[in-house]
Amino acid sequence: MLEIRWHSRAGQGAVTGAKGLADVVSRTGKFVQAFAFYGSAKRGAAMTAYNRVDDEVILNHEKFMHPDYVLVIDPGLTYTADITAHEKDSTKYIITTHLSKDELIAGQPKLKGKDVYVVDCMQISLDTIGRAIPNTPMLGALMKVSGMFELDYFQDAMKSVLSKFPQKIIDANMAAIERAYNSVK
């Protein structure tokens, strides 16, 4: 069982990102879950979303997990949310920031010694999509770090997930995924 936790602000697309990832993964015959914690969520409120992936039907409905990957798509949440909650020794962190990895860890010492990757999903989405929607670039970064799918395969699958959108938006998302894939460190 592969488990992923997203840290996001409501409106940044973590739920859409988690569902998009689930959709792509399901096409390979695997079983998936994508869900989120909602309260009476207001735009901008800190929230978490989750993915589970397994070769068998997923019966587990508890919200609790020890994540294999923690994806932080809002830079501020690295400092204000409990992003290391219920971590494992092997948990990998992919964090949206304009800082270098060393600068980030200096500012948030609890990430010291952990498997941390950085990528600037905010800037990438502003440059490509034209809005601060950091979800699809984060998926590009996840593909690189996890090796889950080749970039080409993932982009093709995402094209069909996004097929209801205009071509311009699909192209922008493809560019965002590719740039994050190539720039995550």
Binding site: K19, A22, D23, Q33, F35, Y38, I58
Partner: peptide
């Protein structure tokens, strides 16, 4: 509510 209604599954 949410556990099924908002959990995407196969």
């Amino acid at each position: 509510g949410f556990i099924t209604s908002h959990t995407a599954e196969n």
